[in-house]
Design a protein around this nucleic acid. Sequence first.
DNA 1: TGTACATCAGTGAACGCGCGTTCACTGATGTAC
DNA 2: TGTACATCAGTGAACGCGCGTTCACTGATGTAC
Lengths: 218, 218
Amino acid sequence: MRAEIKDRAWEQVADAGASALSLNAIAKQMGMSGPALYRYFSGRDDLITELVRDAYRSLADTVTAAAAPGPPDVRVLAAALRGWALADPHRYFLVYGTPVPGYHAPGEITGIASEIMAVLLDAFTAAGPAEGARRRGAAGSADEPGSSAGARFDAHLADHRVWAAEHPAPPAALHRALSFWTRLHGVLSLELAGHFTGMGFDPDLFFAAEVESLLGLS
Amino acid sequence: MRAEIKDRAWEQVADAGASALSLNAIAKQMGMSGPALYRYFSGRDDLITELVRDAYRSLADTVTAAAAPGPPDVRVLAAALRGWALADPHRYFLVYGTPVPGYHAPGEITGIASEIMAVLLDAFTAAGPAEGARRRGAAGSADEPGSSAGARFDAHLADHRVWAAEHPAPPAALHRALSFWTRLHGVLSLELAGHFTGMGFDPDLFFAAEVESLLGLS
DNA sequence: TGTACATCAGTGAACGCGCGTTCACTGATGTAC
DNA sequence: TGTACATCAGTGAACGCGCGTTCACTGATGTAC
């Protein structure tokens, strides 16, 4: 019953956006009266929070499953992320889209968010230095004048080590995880928002090219 | 007068989101009655369209100004984009955020969107091949088996050449422009949406590192 | 087998709210003679 | 200088709507004796 309500809620999110989600409309669509839903959810915010939580949970599970078997593979992780995003664009936007004003995610949700990041972090830590970095050998130290912005950021990460206790990872792995996350989000969100329409190219090929560029990343 | 209405509208967008924009609330805030606004805008949709148009126009002007003086510089373009985004996050999200369901941008707006892309395209065409590509020499042809995803995408772009007539550009330049756009959008939108909070690193340094990685892009 | 009762999902009316939008209007301003 | 008029920004009432949420209630179901 809660499940059916959530299904209808997703339909509403799909064609009117999260901010237009209405308990009365859901009830009407289910052939029930509005107040009936209060047996299952304590209110509108409760339902929305549930949707957001489920979306995060689903993404975390997807990413975890993609990272699980064998050695971590950037391409597999990327494909899993893309598949998840394309399967339900509105769910993707509920997680990574324009923040809903006034809405603050409860701690449980930020916990799942760091869980996702932890998977990426572990994957890139296990993968070791990237091809590009291996080819180039040790990168220039950030102390040298004229050091690259990438090396400077790595040094910064070493100083302000994120999740130092829970998820120790070399700065380079963290850097790669962040680039993985932001670059793929860039392609996916613009694609899903329809900003590529009318440009005539195949988003799939572009995505593949972006993923490839991540492989050589220091 | 239209200007003041739009100012108030932006304030509303800022702290309640575009979908919560209300003519009555704007009027109340200006000490007027609701219907008074109909002297200046034909309705709510008219006002929203105006806001979106202004946002696109502002971005196009910013990018054009950054590309204008001297030889095009990726770093200057990137800094201009970031500055524009940070100056007003809600404006940024109005352009690149979660699409408003049911809203279709009028032709004028998609025109400004291609204008922005054209500036990037011209800049990267004028800049010529990137450092990385120059160092590597001619990239492998897409016809070879085992060719890279990047080369394959370039070949695809050559076939499905976008804006072939209006803005002729080599596939490599188009590819770089797309990567510029999507990668920077990835960092900016996640940063502005608050997904970096709690991670403890400086988004500015990460942005700089991402920009640098664009310089060596084939 | 039959009766009394508890449980509880769902109803319908109601509250107060704010929305977009229309309509006939007021009343100040400026212009023409 | 004074009068008649046109213009037009803004008002207030009204329309119909849908929203979230509360409340007392019905009425079917299942259980206990």
